[in-house]
Amino acid sequence: MSHSSSRSDAVTAGQEMIRLDAVAKEFPGGVRAVDAVDLAVEAGSVYGIVGHSGAGKSTLLRLINLLERPTTGSVTVGGQELTTLGERQLRTARRDIGMIFQQFNLFRSRTVLGNVAFPLRQSGSSRAEARTKALEALRFVGLDEHAKRYPEQLSGGQRQRVGIARALATSPRVLLCDEATSALDPQTTQEVLELLRRVNTELGVTIVVITHEMEVVTAICDRVAVMEDGRVVERGEVHEVFTRPQHPTTQAFVRAALHASPVLGLLPGLLREHGVDAAVADSVLAQLDANGTEFASAERTERNQRNQAVSA
């Protein structure tokens, strides 16, 4: 139960890359988008934040690089307390925090190369240096051959890969992903998730993703926090939270994710095929059902009818 509604993330001292302490964001009009959130993200890990739209996860992500300034609380990234910095210092600090977006937010007026070179140019790199580094980043995402094209000539998945290359161009230690796969089809989503995994393992970049898709969390995250009404209602290791969801919101997410998985429909058949005892199989299905999985309803109805026929 360590994960359920726990107030903190267990991170070894000195190993944390991102730390939010009692961070709150209140918008004009009194809307509390984020309410007293503590968060600690371990260096080199992938942290997922899930929640329905309006839960405050998007605001929370923007509090990490201070695109939104917190009303109260402090934000520390890479050992530097961002909330104490002035505008100019903050701009420098942001070069160490890449960000990608649901709608990619590429510059339409610039080529692929121009997009990726932009953050380098404006942080003081020479034209030649920016070009070299941008091509390097494009090679990493597999798009160096498209350097001269414009964003509108690329597919959604390619655009997001350009977005990733642009975010990585300045070699940041942190990458923030704002619903990065929500505008993509399942196949492309897998490709982008695979790329993000490489960003994490090969480049050692600490990643924070916000998403409403549980499968994104299960695919790449180590830890997950579930948000509702501006608060973190549950958090922990992904497998832990996923297998024993405590909060109704988490349970709803897990349920939705299970529904989305075609494999589960095969489960009753598989249990039977592998000679699992009927009582055990029923118990497994009943437990899944208790968690809200309705995958086996047709199967069960059929079996119930059979049972009734036998007992009659």
């Binding site: 942001r94 977006f101 642009r166």
Partner: peptide
């Protein structure tokens, strides 16, 4: 698109730039 401005801000681009 406001998103484009947000992307630039996230990169640490100054307001005048």
């Amino acid at each position: 698109e406001p998103g484009v401005i947000e992307a630039a801000r996230a990169m640490g681009t100054s307001r005048i730039r």
